[in-house]
Amino acid sequence: MDVINALVALTNYVLIPATAYGAQLALGALGVTLVYSILRFSNFAHGDTMAFGTGIVILFTWLFQSWGISLGPLPTALLALPFGIIVTAALLLGTDRVVYKFYRKVRAAPVILVMVSVGVMFVMNALTRFLIGVDQITFDDGERFVISARQWRDMTGLSEPLTLRSTQVITIVTALLVMVALFWFLNRTRTGKSMRAFSDNEDLALLSGINPDRVVTVTWIITGALATIAGTLYGLDKSFKAFTYFQLLLPIFAAAIVGGIGSPVGAILGGFVISFSEVGLTYAWKKVATYLIPHWEPDGLVQLLSTDYKFAVSFTILILVLIFKPTGLLKGKIV
């Protein structure tokens, strides 16, 4: 029985949260890796793009709520999501036209583009704060739990509670759908294949008559969609705060690089590697340990690392990968 309770506690506090967080990181890392493979720079504005997209989704959510529109048990934000994607994609396309296009034309070094993305980051940062402020915002509504602690107890009779929040299920299902759609697009459609070709070998893609402007446009639209979805899922699951999204840059970059930057499968793998390490190392294992080892009452929390140091986990994994396998777990590209 204790073993089962230990498993339940593990699932409740580590497996479920880490899977949801991993899915959010994976979507973020997919956006970073896509911009990296097509536009060939690390986009420092990606965290703020996520914040901007989520901000728009929240505004639309409030609008729909004020009209009395809802999705019943599902959060209204899901209804607002398409509008957030459209606005964010439009902003990214506008930014590309005004800012990035010039540097592509002069074939600027990647590090210059990184610096340019810092300027874009400032502007997006300000836009998001203008729109929605700096405060913490909770915007999930609808049914809170798929399985609540009481239902679980009635169902299983176990003393150890397990809850499955609806935002966690929504995160995992949405992320799965988005990933399937993205891979279908990249591997099965003409436009998707032309994007992979452009990423693989830009000169040959041009020789083959692939239109670079079209590839770039589609890339920004997908990036906007991925960023908005990732940001909204993260915000639903936890809460929205503009600065937190900026800080997500580090685990997201780490996920993309650990998986092998430029490789979409790698981005997903990296997202889960980072999330499971982070949650696993910062979880207080006392409960699980007490179940598994009888007659032992640990003094501390049996927490390997305080949650304040969760960034240290991403960082350490990043450094280890850079030292031992700079191309990432799945071989990414080195431009």
Partner: peptide, 11 residues
């Protein structure tokens, strides 16, 4: 890569 330093220093 040049931007790995940026990401490592960010961390």
């Amino acid at each position: 890569r040049s931007d790995y330093l940026a990401i490592a220093t960010l961390g």
